[in-house]
Nucleic acid binder design. Structure first.
Length: 209
DNA sequence: AGCCAGGGTCTAA
DNA sequence: TTAGACCATGGC
């Protein structure tokens, strides 16, 4: 089994400098909800079309029905509209101020985010890492699948999270990059060319046995 | 045409 | 406590 560092090194060598979700914290919050069980292009289409409305004050000013219509193409629009509203209200408690929000401890922020109905572990961790720059490793379907293919069979997501966090420095930038690389690997390579000799994990991938 | 997509909540056993 | 139903829509 590769270590967390070895996996990162291979991803970096294969895909180069990783990207970042967004430098706009509120955009990360909205998109992290919209992408729940939804393909990314749908999220992009909605958020680009709604560019002018994508400020927390504007969202809270909309009627629930208008917000629902705005995000309809992403699916689950009733629930996601409610979640976005609740999340925005949570952010309002910090005056829509990232710095004020970041002043809180990571554990407290994670608890508060998980307490927002409609926000689960993955959404909370995406917001922690990309919007608030707190090192909470993001475990998503791709992360689970990659580790499984590398021969690691965790009982639950907490085990996956500790696999990474136990070995890596608690660095939000690193975690964000790491998640981004797993994403790139999963979408750009694994999905389009399922079995591929150029895969950075070809030698250890369970699928090749 | 049917299946899946970067999830989360609620419920029945 | 856990597996399964449910939530909605678009893309392939």
């Amino acid at each position: 089994m590769l270590t967390a560092r070895e996996i990162y090194e291979r991803l970096l060598a294969a895909y180069g400098q990783p990207g970042w979700w967004s430098d706009d914290p509120y955009r990360v919050m909205v998109q992290s909800v919209l992408v729940q069980n939804t393909a990314w292009p749908s999220v992009l289409r909605v958020t680009q079309a709604a560019e002018a409305s994508l400020a927390p004050e504007r969202i809270l000013a909309m009627t629930p029905e208008a917000l629902k219509e705005l995000i309809r193409p992403c699916g689950f629009c009733t629930r996601k509209a409610e979640t976005i509203r609740r999340l925005t209200q949570w952010y309002a408690g910090y005056g829509f101020d990232v710095k004020r929000t970041q002043a809180c401890g990571q554990a407290q922020l994670r608890r508060e985010l998980l307490a927002v109905k409609g926000v689960g572990a993955e959404t909370a961790d995406v917001i922690l890492v990309y919007a608030l720059h707190k090192p909470s490793f993001v475990v998503d379907a791709y992360t689970r699948r990659l580790l499984r293919r590398l021969g690691f069979a965790p009982d639950d997501d907490d085990d996956v999270r500790s696999f990474f966090e136990a070995e890596l420095a608690p660095d939000a930038r690193l975690y964000g990059w790491y998640h981004w690389l797993i994403l790139t690997h999963s979408i750009e390579r694994c999905r389009k060319t399922p079995v591929c000799g150029a895969c950075p994990f070809y030698d250890v991938c369970q699928r090749n046995r």
